[in-house]
Simulated scan of single mutants.
Amino acid sequence: MYAFLHDRARVLHGLGERLRSDGALVIITPTAGNTPEERRGIALDEDEIALVRSGWETTERHDADGLAVLILRGPCHADAVAVEKGPTAGRALSGALAVVADASGRVLLGRSRHGMLELPGGKNEPGEDFARAAVRELVEETGLVAGPEDAHVLSLLLDACHGVPRITAVVRITAWTGVLANGEPQLFGRWEWYDLHALACAGPVFTPAAHALACVWSGIIPGLPPVTAYPLAVGQPPVPG
Rank of each mutant, 00 (worst) to 15 (best):
G189L: 09
G189W: 12
G55W: 09
G55M: 09
L15V: 04
A80I: 12
S94G: 04
N182W: 12
M1W: 07
H77Q: 07
L232A: 09
G203L: 09
F188T: 01
R20Y: 07
E46D: 14
I167Y: 01
E84A: 10
L180D: 08
A133F: 03
A80F: 11
D45P: 04
V135H: 01
A209L: 07
A32K: 03
P231L: 05
L67V: 04
E38T: 03
A82K: 02
T29V: 09
D102P: 04
L154Q: 10
E60R: 12
G147T: 07
D195G: 02
E17C: 02
E17S: 15
T59F: 13
L154S: 00
P222C: 11
H13V: 00
P208T: 12
A151I: 03
V170T: 14
A210Q: 07
D195Y: 08
V164A: 02
R8P: 09
A98K: 03
N182S: 15
G41D: 12
T88Q: 14
A89E: 13
L158F: 07
T142Y: 01
L44E: 07
S155E: 15
E137Y: 11
L138Q: 08
A9S: 10
I221C: 12
S104K: 12
G66N: 07
W217C: 04
I27E: 03
V11S: 04
E60L: 14
G235C: 00
R10P: 02
A24C: 08
D47H: 01
A78D: 13
N34K: 13
G41E: 11
N34E: 04
Y194F: 15
P225W: 03
T177I: 03
N34D: 11
G115W: 13
R18W: 02
R113V: 15
V26I: 15
G55H: 08
L25Q: 04
Q236W: 09
G115T: 02
H162Q: 03
L108G: 05
E57V: 13
H152Q: 01
I71Q: 04
E125G: 08
A103W: 04
E46F: 01
L119W: 02
P165L: 07
L19K: 05
P148Y: 09
G16S: 06
S94W: 07
V227K: 11
A3M: 03
L199D: 10
H77G: 12
A131C: 11
G203H: 01
L93W: 12
R136N: 11
A89Q: 15
G66H: 02
P225Q: 10
G74M: 13
P238N: 14
L199Y: 09
C161W: 14
Y230Q: 10
L199H: 05
T58Y: 09
P165H: 00
R53I: 01
L12S: 13
L51Y: 01
L44S: 03
N124A: 10
E37R: 15
S155P: 07
T31G: 00
A92Y: 13
E17Y: 00
D195F: 02
H6V: 12
A233W: 14
E17D: 10
P87N: 12
A24Y: 04
G23K: 10
G127D: 02
V52Q: 09
E46C: 01
V171F: 05
G163V: 05
G219T: 00
A80L: 13
N182Q: 06
P208N: 06
R18E: 11
V83C: 13
